[in-house]
């Protein structure tokens, strides 16, 4: 809601934006820091939007990179091949990703737990393989020489909008409907919540913002390739969300910032970087499974996961 706390945060973040912009304009902040800030912003958009699906609605999706790639490719095609303006291209990417969310969401949403996870992983990979086989977007070598249109200002305000939209959803009757699906799907439906509709909403909105992050990425790093959007990327986003705390936007933002910083910092130790990263992952899960600021205990997923609507029980081994 629009209360005091909200305005305090808004003012603080605008001040932060202003200071950074001032430093950039004055050339006091070198490219490395700007890169890191933009990357953090993009990762926040990815994580916060995946959190709507996984954290709030309790659906287990690990195909976020697929939606991201749609935003990246579609918006890059728009600026590169059709000379559209940046905002229009971004929006086109978002809408395309959201449509993909709809198309993927409808048939898969009867699946639950692990089964949904695998299906989304499969869809993510299929999307990547489609790019790989599309000559129009450069096949395996991808698209090159995309204009660098993303900057700190775009990133900052789009992060802000993403967080606002997600929070506005979550803190409304629609968000409560989503959370009720996570908490107890059968009870939610018995209380008149159209469970399928809200799962689709979560997927569509989540995909929309994943597309936005994709568009920003494409226009910051000049180049996009199918391999950048494989299931490893989806895992990475999932890790931000789980380490931050499923169902807690604040936790997810914080977790994403810390992990992105850590990752950037570890770049100085290329050989050890991924090893340290993996160890941190494992140790956090063992010693702090609820994430940094875990919202809900995620226990529900233990009980429910593994069986789809008419899923298999494991009758023989």
């Amino acid at each position: 809601m629009f209360n005091k706390k909200f305005f305090l945060y808004l003012v603080l973040s605008l001040v932060f934006y202003g200071v950074v912009q001032f430093l950039i304009t004055g050339m006091w902040l070198n490219d490395f820091y700007v890169d890191t800030l933009v990357l953090i912003g993009i990762n926040i958009i990815l994580a916060v939007s995946l959190n709507l699906i996984n954290g709030f609605t309790g659906q287990f999706s690990i195909g976020h990179a697929g939606f991201m790639s749609i935003g990246a490719y579609v918006s890059a095609i728009m600026t590169y091949n059709f000379q559209m303006s940046f905002p229009v291209a971004l929006l086109a990417g978002c809408v395309a990703a959201a449509l993909a969310g709809l198309v993927i969401g409808l048939p898969t949403l009867r699946l639950k737990g692990d089964y949904l996870a695998i299906a989304t992983l499969g869809f993510g990979e299929i999307i990547r393989i489609v790019w790989l086989n599309t000559e129009y977007v450069g096949g395996a070598s991808g698209m090159n020489g995309i204009d660098k249109l993303t900057n700190w200002t775009w990133t900052f305000f789009l992060v802000l909008i993403t967080i606002l939209v997600i929070q506005n959803i979550v803190k409304s009757t629609h968000g409560r409907a989503m959370i009720s699906v996570r908490e107890n799907e059968i009870a939610a439906e018995a209380m008149g919540v159209n469970v399928t509709k809200y799962k689709v909403y979560a997927f569509v909105v989540g995909a929309f913002f994943a597309g936005l992050a994709g568009g920003l990425t494409a226009h910051y790093f000049y180049i996009i390739q199918p391999t950048s959007f494989n299931f490893m990327k989806s895992f990475e986003i999932l890790v931000f969300v789980v380490l931050g705390g499923l169902g807690s936007t604040g936790g997810v933002v914080l977790g994403t910032i810390l992990l992105t910083l850590l990752f950037t910092y570890l770049q100085e130790y290329p050989e050890l970087r991924m090893i340290i990263y993996s160890l941190i992952l494992i140790f956090t899960m063992i010693f702090r499974p609820q994430g940094l600021l875990g919202g809900f205990s995620a226990k529900k997923m233990v009980k429910k996961g593994g069986s789809s609507q008419d899923g298999s029980s494991t009758t023989s081994a």
């Binding site: 409560r176 409907a177 959370i179 009720s180 059968i186 919540v193 809900f296 205990s297």
Partner: peptide, 20 residues
């Protein structure tokens, strides 16, 4: 089958959702 991690009030509000 309550919505265990939601507040008491939110539980009831979910049921009122369809009238929103």
């Amino acid at each position: 089958r309550l919505f265990g991690d939601m507040t008491v009030l939110e539980n009831v509000m979910v049921a009122y959702h369809m009238h929103a």
